[in-house]
């Protein structure tokens, strides 16, 4: 490894350079289409005003966040979704993926496609269906009545409405995350499982001792993206409950969108709230990377 090349670079340096060349197009594109607008958004977050007449006002948009009860409410809602939904969904996806990776299983393709389908289903129909399923005289309440229980006014109570959102999220995104696990599982040699089976390991042991550790890079990927996705949750809040009852299911992104495009526009404030989301996600992502990204 120590032989120097013609240009006076070590092989290692040369490879390092090749690496940089490989990632340059992607990095440049991201800088141009993401970081540049992000910097603009940050500058915008320091401005206030009506319509297009904006002027610099320092950090007043940020101090304003502290006084905003709606923001606090949406922050609470969003974190509530995060804490409940992400772990349940990822564990479920992992279980499904390892079941569907079983060589002896029949109709695998059919099962996989069925379980994946929810995330391909257009938001319009999915929102309509969930609203009608959980309507006051909808399917779910009919079933509850059938079991002799009292029907629940799902969308009339803050906690049950949040529950509906979480159920909907899990329903929609479990199959999506399963895709990553399925593809990650292909990189684990089947012989490892064979060996474990011969050694008499139970399926549960195999799952925790082999599947989970070897899938760690994928688990990290899905954890970061799901965290990010949940903190930026928008569609469900808007289409399923429209934030109601009151604002008890509204998410931060939904509030930001309203501030920009539904209410009288206040872009500076919306940008400031977005920067806060960015910081929150970044902190969580760095923590997750620290825990999960050891080589």
């Amino acid at each position: 490894m120590s032989g120097s090349s013609k240009k006076g670079l070590t092989l290692q340096e040369k490879h390092g350079l090749t690496g940089w060349v490989f990632l340059t197009p992607a990095v440049l594109l991201i800088c141009w289409t993401s970081f540049y607008p992000m910097i603009q958004a940050f500058i915008l977050s320091l401005k206030t005003g009506m319509g297009v007449n904006l002027s610099f006002s320092g950090f007043s948009n940020y101090t304003r966040i502290l006084k905003d009860p709606t923001f606090k409410q949406t922050l609470f809602n969003t974190f509530f979704y995060l804490i409940i939904q992400v772990p349940v969904m990822l564990v479920l996806a992992l279980i499904l993926a390892s079941l569907l990776n079983n060589k002896q299983l029949r109709f695998k393709g059919l099962f996989r496609t069925c379980i994946f389908l929810p995330c391909a289903t257009s938001l319009v129909s999915y929102a309509m269906i969930f609203r009608s399923l959980f309507a006051n005289d909808g399917f779910v309440n009919t079933v509850l009545r059938g079991f002799g229980m009292n029907p629940i006014m799902w969308f009339a109570n803050a906690w049950t409405a949040r529950a509906v959102i979480i159920i909907a999220l899990i329903w929609r995104w479990t199959g999506y995350n399963m895709v990553f696990y399925l593809s990650g599982l292909q990189n684990i040699e089947y012989s490892v499982y064979e060996a474990a089976r011969i050694d008499g390991a139970s399926p549960l042991q195999t799952f925790f001792k082999i599947t989970v550790p070897l899938l760690k890079p994928t688990i990290l990927l899905t954890t970061i993206t799901s965290t990010n996705g949940t903190l930026q949750l928008f569609d469900e809040s808007l289409n399923l409950t429209n934030g109601g009852p009151g604002k008890s299911t509204m998410t931060m992104s939904h509030y930001i969108y309203n501030t920009s495009f539904v209410q009288s526009p206040n872009f500076g404030y919306a940008a400031a709230m977005s920067i806060i989301i960015l910081i929150l996600v970044a902190i969580l992502a760095i923590l997750q990377m620290k825990v999960g990204d050891e080589r």
Partner: peptide, 14 residues
Amino acid sequence: LTAMMIPFAAVMIP
């Protein structure tokens, strides 16, 4: 990674 962490509504106008 931070590039995916900002809500789209915020960068749409820039």
